[in-house]
Design a protein around this nucleic acid. Structure first.
Lengths: 377, 377
DNA sequence: ATTCGCTATGAATCTTAGG
DNA sequence: TCCTAAGATTCATAGCGAA
């Protein structure tokens, strides 16, 4: 790849880096080291699993199981695999933005070593996610449980990175209004989605389903973000990124995979931007100062506020504080104090009298926000 | 404990070792080192998870979460935790029979380190098993996925131990005649099963459900086998072993837990025969996330949904939310909003166009459930 | 006896803007 | 970088008391 860098005075929207939406050919660590530091929002990595297979496996009908015995999955020892793992995790960490996150998928053959290395290098695990397969391969010998899942580790760059992207509200709304759990159910990649080579055989032994990558990106990226995949393979990450209006960068060694992935991604039609809007919750709403309700005349100084059951009454003061007897403070502090709690959301706790009933002052905040939007605040 | 050993010429059925069906008090490694080598069939270990908590956590209702902040879960560093882990895994391996197996349970905080150490010490992983919780604690701050599972590693003593116990056929028969998968569904331990202290509070912070231990023993032991638990705690392993006609050995440091476990186990009545309740782990009506219809391609992002009379039309967004103009949210929230109601069942309210007519999206949910049932949801 | 509503709680690495 | 204050945030289940 070339050594072109983003100019410091140009935002990505003004000048697109030449490595965006491309597949870099070569060794994963070498390619990573050529990318600018802190330049990608999310990394999805599907590294070699270090499967340790001896001999062939046959199904009960004597057909042979097409094992993952590619040369790139051969390591001499756990130590060799660990060294490989640490090298790419370290190179990836340099490229990740401070508030970026990384996803790594693996099986019991490798995921424990990968997870320990991630912790050792300073990544901070946010969740481990279980991909439950609806249609896993059976255990043919009947000597173990059916291996029906794979594990993903989702981690931030550092323990103190708090501002990573997590589209909580959108995930919850899409999940019947309950928060998304750490166990996900998806079919393995089969049928027309599975890329085939010239012989009609599967092109890549471990092609991941697009639905899995879509869930990952919808959870942890925003439209326009950059998703890096250092083990690009058949290009699922790129295809899903393009469809969902995200940028991708792929790294891959094998020309056969690069060609197939390129063609695959070129055929993807991006979704319309309007369908890509991410549902945002209250956190994204602009802040409203309680005093601004007084400024705008929605609440008069001297007005009385009550809790929902009218157990307490407090007086609004001209400076935007609330008072009960000697005690005065913010709507939150006074709400907490009367309940004997450490914290309280005054917006939902306090009410005002209207039409003989009580209405939350949060209703006034909502109205104030509409005014702010009109004013382009 | 005493230094009594099994005579070499007597089988366990002829002379019962004095440490069988007892709880050894003391440090885990020291106690393990006093047991005879190659003397137990299965080890179940629930070691400290090394949670790293900062400050208190409160529920949205301001109640405080009772965190696991016990002294036995405090380690200075990953290195200290690794040293602890290697020490007990090594001592446990000496005690394990050549064809014995070990189960270790953990969360993302520790399981990757534990798994890597197990591989380093020569244990051979047979499966990783996911315990999916029906009723996990929510994520209260909405900053991560709900942590809804724990991970267990099942391993043999060596890579070449082939004669370990695995009751394949009975598991399959108990599971509707399909192989038992690597993801299991159980509730957490609550209600009358949960041991309480004199104040009525939970006796032990991490008591495991008996159903989980029963599945483990039914899978990997035979009646009369010896099950060792080096972190005995409230004694679930002992209680289930006695009930299922297995022997146990527990190791525990805290006298309070020993006393409670002893009383608990004494109260257990062994089953006459091992015709046990089948824990199929299937639930009545698995929940379907609306977004899973998008994942599976049944609904496309950008598609339009209508109410039965086509009075309203809404657009499906890629993140699984529904949008009408500026308003967006779950199928339920948007259904409620357009009708001016507080609540709405989006599954029955919204329809899609098919064959020129309208069909409820609930029809798609029914189809999705068929796939989930196959996966044992 | 049954239902309904309210409360309690579980292995938790659980915020963020602004001064 | 540190400190303060605003204010956002929960699902399933068991138990209990009232109706």
């Amino acid at each position: 790849m070339s050594a072109v860098r983003l100019s410091a005075d140009l935002s990505p929207s003004q000048q697109k880096a030449d490595w965006l939406d491309t597949i870099l050919k070569g060794d994963c660590v070498a390619a990573l080291n050529k990318l600018p530091e802190k330049s990608v929002d999310v990394i999805f990595a599907d590294p070699p699993y270090n499967l340790q297979l001896n001999g062939d496996l046959h199904r009960p009908d004597q057909s042979k199981v097409d094992a993952v015995d590619d040369h790139w999955d051969q390591f001499d020892s756990f130590a060799a695999y660990d060294a490989f793992t640490r090298a790419w995790l370290l190179a990836a960490r340099r490229v990740l933005k401070p508030n970026g996150t990384i996803w790594v998928i693996g099986s019991y053959h490798n995921i424990f070593r990968v997870g320990a290395s991630m912790q050792d290098l300073g990544y901070w695990i946010l969740n481990d996610i279980v991909w439950r397969k609806t249609n896993p391969m059976p255990n043919f010998r009947g000597r173990r449980f059916q291996n029906a899942h794979e594990t993903m580790i989702w981690a931030s760059r550092d323990a103190n990175s708090k501002s990573y992207t997590f589209n909580y509200d959108s995930l919850k709304a899409a999940n019947d209004d309950v928060q998304m759990r750490s166990d996900w159910l998806f079919p393995i990649c089969t049928g027309s989605e599975r890329l085939k080579d010239d012989n009609g055989d599967k092109l890549h032994p471990t092609q991941k389903p697009e639905a899995l990558l879509a869930r990952i990106m919808l959870a942890s990226t925003k439209p326009g973000d950059v998703v890096l995949d250092p083990f690009f393979g058949s290009g699922t990450t790129g295809a899903v990124a393009k469809r969902l209006g995200r940028h991708f960068v792929g790294i891959e060694r094998e020309q056969e995979y690069i060609d197939a992935a390129r063609a695959r991604i070129d055929a993807v039609k991006p979704l319309e931007s309007t369908t890509l809007t991410v549902l945002s919750g209250k956190r994204a709403e602009p802040r409203v100062a309680f005093v601004s309700l007084i400024d705008s005349g929605m609440i008069k100084p001297g007005a009385t506020l009550y809790d929902a059951k009218k157990r307490w009454a407090a007086t609004v003061r001209a400076d935007g504080t609330l008072a009960i007897g000697e005690q005065a403070g913010s709507i939150h502090r006074i709400g907490a104090a009367v309940q004997g709690l450490d914290a309280c959301n005054g917006w939902t706790f306090w009410h005002y009298e209207r039409n003989g009933g009580l209405t939350q002052i949060d209703e006034l905040r909502r109205i104030a926000r509409l005014g702010m939007e009109r004013a382009g605040a």
